[in-house]
C-alpha cells in the first residue's frame, strides 16, 4: 500500500512535470503583439530578374540572389537530389493559357490560420503574436503531418543531416538536425535583432533583392499604416495563393500591371 506521504510526493512531482513544458517552450521568445509581418513579391520585377539571369547563364534552374542569400543566411543545405533537397524559398514558373511565363518566389506564407500549426501534435509549429510561424526543433518529432497540411509545399524534411550539404555555417541561425521539418522563418533572428535595435527589419532575401537592384520583395509591418507594405496593399489588388482555403496567407503577389 502506498503511504500518504509518498502519494503526495508523487502528486507534487507529477504536477511539477506537467508544468515543465511551459518553461522550456520556444514560445517564450519575446515578440511584439502590435506588429504583423508580411511580404509582397512583385511578379513583374521577379520575372524580369529571372529572365535576365536565365539569358545570361543559360541555366533554366538558376538560383537568383534572393534564394542564394536565404540558403547562406539560414544554413539551408544544398543537396544534388531535388527530391530531398530542403528549400526555404524557391522560384516557380507560372504559365498562363497563352503560354506566357511569369516567375515568382514561393516560401512559407506565415498564414493567419496556419494549418501546419493546427495539426502539429506537439505544438512544435506555432504562430508568434507578430504572425511569424516558427518550428521549435527541440519539440518536432519529425512526423511530417505539417508537410501534408501545408497548402504551399513550403516545408522540407531533413532526410539527411543538413551539415552534410553546407559549406559554411551561420552561427546566428539555429542549426537543424536530421529528422526534423524546417521552413522559412521570415529571418526571425534578423527581425528580433532589428526590433531590439529599433530599426526596420529586413530578411536576407529582401536584402539581396534590394542589393541586386530589383526591389521586387517588400517586407514590413502591415499594422503600421505608414509602412511601404501597407501602402502597396492599400493601393493595389494583390494575389494570395490558395486564398479559398481561408488560411489568410501573408505573402502577397503583385500581379503584372
Amino acid at each position: 500500500m502506498i503511504s500518504r506521504r509518498r502519494f503526495l510526493l508523487l502528486l507534487g512531482a507529477s504536477a511539477a512535470m506537467a508544468m515543465m513544458p511551459l518553461q522550456i517552450s520556444a514560445k517564450s521568445v519575446k515578440s511584439e503583439a502590435k506588429r504583423r509581418w508580411a511580404m509582397v513579391a512583385d511578379i513583374e520585377k521577379c520575372t524580369e530578374c529571372m529572365k535576365e539571369l536565365i539569358q545570361k547563364t543559360g541555366n533554366k534552374e538558376i538560383k537568383p540572389p534572393c534564394v542564394v542569400a536565404c540558403d547562406k543566411e539560414n544554413n539551408v543545405p544544398d543537396f544534388e537530389e531535388k527530391a530531398i533537397d530542403p528549400q526555404w524559398i524557391r522560384i516557380a514558373k507560372f504559365k498562363n493559357k497563352f503560354g506566357e511565363e511569369f516567375y515568382a518566389p514561393l516560401l512559407c506564407n506565415h498564414c493567419e490560420h496556419p494549418p501546419c500549426a493546427q495539426v502539429c501534435l506537439t505544438q512544435a509549429t506555432f504562430k508568434r503574436s507578430d504572425g511569424i510561424v516558427e518550428v521549435d526543433m527541440h519539440r518536432c518529432i519529425g512526423c511530417r503531418y505539417c508537410m501534408i497540411a501545408c497548402p504551399y509545399g513550403s516545408r522540407s524534411y531533413n532526410f539527411r543531416d543538413p551539415r552534410e550539404g553546407l559549406k559554411e555555417v551561420n552561427p546566428k541561425v539555429v542549426m537543424r538536425t536530421k529528422g526534423v521539418v524546417e521552413k522559412c522563418t521570415f529571418c526571425v533572428h534578423r527581425v528580433d535583432e532589428a526590433i531590439e535595435k529599433g530599426v526596420e527589419p529586413e530578411p536576407a532575401c529582401v536584402e539581396a533583392c534590394r542589393i541586386n537592384g530589383k526591389n521586387s520583395l517588400v517586407f514590413g509591418d502591415i499594422n503600421d499604416p505608414n509602412s511601404k507594405i501597407s501602402k502597396i496593399l492599400r493601393e493595389s489588388i494583390v494575389i494570395q495563393l490558395r486564398s479559398e482555403l481561408g488560411t489568410d496567407p501573408h505573402v502577397y503577389y503583385l500581379p503584372k500591371r
Binding site: V67, K82, R90, I91, A92, K93, F94, N96, G153
Partner: peptide, 17 residues
C-alpha cells in the same frame, strides 16, 4: 496542388508542379 487557379506552376528548385 494548384497554387494559382488557371496557371500551370513548375518549381525550378523543387518537384512542385
Amino acid at each position: 496542388s494548384e497554387y494559382l487557379p488557371g496557371y500551370e506552376v513548375e518549381s525550378l528548385h523543387t518537384l512542385e508542379g
